[in-house]
Nucleic acid binder design. Structure first.
Lengths: 197, 197
DNA sequence: ATGTATGAAATACGCATCGTATGTCAAGTC
DNA sequence: GACTTGACATACGATGCGTATTTCATACAT
């Protein structure tokens, strides 16, 4: 059959990232054994260290992938809204809901910052943040939002959403708490407006 | 001299927690060696496992201490303000500034949630959150804030402050970024008001 | 087509660290 | 003053990471 070299390498990377998403989400980063993880992918640690350098490198790759998926989804949802302003609210609500996914929560929100440091410094540049920031910038230039620092506004908004998600996930009855969180998020975001709706 | 037993035990706990604050803040939780840490305190791992159960237990004790200190300070600052509303703003700004302290940031904001889970589930009950929540409750009952879920509002506010702090600390010039963050925080918080100031 | 070079992945090794199991000695008790 | 308790130290086993070395298929050159 004579398969190409770069082809199988790419497949192995995909396998490792997939296994890592699963294991990191279930056990957390530090409790994840690289022997088990690579075995699950049908490989050994040799492949891991060759492709990703070290355990952190694998986490970075996983975080990058999930973060990108989240940003794409949030942007789609935001674009579907009636206005840019409603788009911002919809994006925020989308982040809150996505963060209920264990993979997102455990890997991106908890272990990611602890192991890789501040999200804005990640190789992925934290796509989620970029999406929010550009939406905010647009709204400011339209005179809808107060002329605040766009990055500051974006970071505080995403921080609020993030914390809301942690709260919801830890609560007994997530489904009853979700609407309260979204309502509070809407109220906060309205504080950025130049004038009341 | 015949020192009391419970007395020296208490002193040893204090020594271990002090050493842990230092080491956890400097190296991070996972990179902190318990052999080194206990040696710095003039003890061995035996004392650690006897007093705190395991490495996590020590972190929990440290987090509890710092969280309590933060809550006390925030409350003092809030009480000093002219009104409850200005108190809420002052508390938020205080959290942002406190989070610039490496101990707070590394231990409470990064490693704490990753290792111990959601802050609201911590043994300390997350005093910081309680302070904010009770301030919010007071303002709601006074009709100054919208009738939102107090916990939701408190969690989103503290989340926004927390993220602002991470941003500031990672930035090149923290002192120039701080006012932008505080300004954005004030704007967001104003969204909780029943009517514009 | 055959031999050689490359490099992706496997195997082998050393080092560090955690948690526990066992030992020890001073402080408290009767 | 003998005995018990328990706080802490020491000894041990196990696990896991990262690196050094080895293997072997694939790509390339002649």
């Amino acid at each position: 059959m004579a398969r190409k070299r770069s082809e199988t390498m790419q497949e192995n990377r995909v396998k490792l990232i997939a296994a890592a998403r699963k294991t990191f989400a279930e056990k957390g980063y530090s409790a994840a054994s690289m022997d088990e993880l690579t075995a699950d992918a049908g490989l050994t640690r040799g492949a891991l260290y060759h492709n990703f350098g070290d355990k952190r490198g694998l986490l970075a790759a996983v975080v990058d992938q999930i973060d990108t998926e989240m940003a794409v989804r949030a942007q789609e949802i935001g674009a579907r809204a009636g206005s840019d302003w409603q788009g911002l609210l919809a994006e925020g609500a989308a982040y809150i809901e996505m963060a209920l996914n264990p993979e997102v929560q455990r890997i991106v929100l908890l272990d990611g910052p602890a192991v890789l440091g501040d999200p804005s410094q990640w190789p992925s540049q934290n796509n989620c943040l970029q999406v929010t920031k550009s939406t905010v910038e647009r709204l400011i230039s339209q005179g809808i939002l107060k002329p605040l620092d766009p990055e500051a506004a974006a970071r505080l908004l995403s921080g609020a959403a993030l914390n809301a998600a942690l709260w919801i996930a830890a609560s007994e009855d997530p489904q009853s708490v979700l609407p309260k969180a979204v309502e509070a998020f809407h109220a906060l975001a309205a504080g950025l407006l130049v004038e009341r709706l």
